[in-house]
Every structure is written in structure tokens, then in C-alpha cells.
Design a protein around this nucleic acid. Sequence first.
DNA 1: CCCATTCATCGACGGTCATCGATGCTTCTG
DNA 2: CAGAAGCATCGATGACCGTCGATGAATGGG
Lengths: 113, 113
Amino acid sequence: MINCCTPLAGSSLDAGRAAELEGVMKALADRQRLRIVNMLLRAAGESVCVCEFEPFLGLSQATVSHHLKVLAEAGLVEREGRGTRSYYSLVDGALDAVRGVFAPAAPAGAGSC
Amino acid sequence: MINCCTPLAGSSLDAGRAAELEGVMKALADRQRLRIVNMLLRAAGESVCVCEFEPFLGLSQATVSHHLKVLAEAGLVEREGRGTRSYYSLVDGALDAVRGVFAPAAPAGAGSC
DNA sequence: CCCATTCATCGACGGTCATCGATGCTTCTG
DNA sequence: CAGAAGCATCGATGACCGTCGATGAATGGG
């Protein structure tokens, strides 16, 4: 099934790495958290106040705080307190693991083995 | 891979699209299903028999069948029956939605586009 | 024609999650 | 110092998920 050349992008995913990636994916497998990440992506590295998410998502303050905590524990976002407010931003490169695993399969260039 | 002008990420993610993507992400937010997708990625488009997954994942046949059903309902894999066996393969382009949403942020108005 | 093989489905069980109101903590303001 | 504002945490609740054994359905072989 798997040939001589180890496919580059479909790199082997052992049980350990699968469990690790599962944590990140579970953090992203929620519509509210997807919208949060999308907002932060569009913020282009800038921090966003918690009070910005609340009206945008239409959730209670407690729920928004919960979602941000989940994302933070997954290493996807970072918290920074200024005064009574909290600002969150994307962790640089945190989404690379997701991008890498779903990269297209090997180039299928048959020859060079 | 991604052209400079394709604003995949940074693209607004409204509530509808977020819910849609949530379905795909939930299907992928499981270590067993991640390993299944990884196996199929490495199979480079070829179909893989159910009986191949079972020993690889170390799960009961019922559980493997369940995971494959979840992936199929999310539109990520496709089933093809041959005799008493079932073969599964990745749906072409099904992972593009995932790749797109997490693409790097827009170049912040970097000139030429 | 009968049996073995392969897979999908069902029912059940234990665990986890999303959401909310209430509460406590920290910081700013008057 | 007292009050208000912003946020995190707690406890509860209802829903969903992963796993398995058992059962059913379809197919191929002797």
C-alpha cells in the first residue's frame, strides 16, 4: 500500500501525534470558536477585546470566556490583560499543524524512487 | 499553492458557513478518524478496504464502521462496495474547505493585488 | 443449498461538551 | 474608600459522542 518513497505531506500520523492533533481539532470543532479564530485571523495579529466577541457571537459573557479558554488551552490563542479588560490574539504558527496534516498527498511523481 | 490574491482566509465567516464548517471539523476532531484520513491521504486516492483499518486502529469492527460512516456523512470519504467488502477513499477536494479557512492572513494590503 | 466472511446497524453505557445564571476577583473612577 | 465595570470561575443541566457486543443483511465458496 505505502511505497518506497515516504509521502511527504501525508506524513505518517502515529497514535501519539493523532491524539495531539485531536486536541487542536476539538478546540476548532465548534462554530463559535471557528468564528472567533476567523475574527482573529482577520485582525492580522492584532489583539481583540473580549467585549468585541460577545455581541458578535450573541452569547453570554460566561460562554465567550469559556470558548476563549478552550482555545487558549489548545495553544491557539494568547491572552493579554490590560486594565479590567482582556485581549486575545492568535498564536503565531499555531495553525500550521492543522494546515500540515491536510496538505495534499505526495506529488505522485512516479520516477525518482 | 495559494495565490496571493485568493483571500481564502480573512474571508468573513458568517454564522451559516461556520456551522457548515463545524460539521467537517467535528468529523475530523477524533484521533481515530484523523488516522483514517491520514491513511487515505497516503493512499493517494486509492481505495482502502475496511479490513485494513481494523487492525491498524486496534478498534472493534463496529467502531471502525461507525467512524467511516461519520466521515462519509461529512462528505470527506466515499464508499464503494465490492463483493462482501467495502472500500473507502477520500473525496477529491473535500479537505479544501479546511485548508482554506486556516490559510494565513491576508498580506495586509501588500501592494500588487 | 448451506455456511463462512464481511460489513452496517442497533441498543446501551460511561464520559464529555456547550450553555447559562450566579458569584468572586481585579482594576479603574469619582 | 465605595461603587462600577469587565472578566474568570463555579455548579447545574441537557445534549451529544466513542466504544463495544449482539444482531441482521449481503455475498462468495464448497
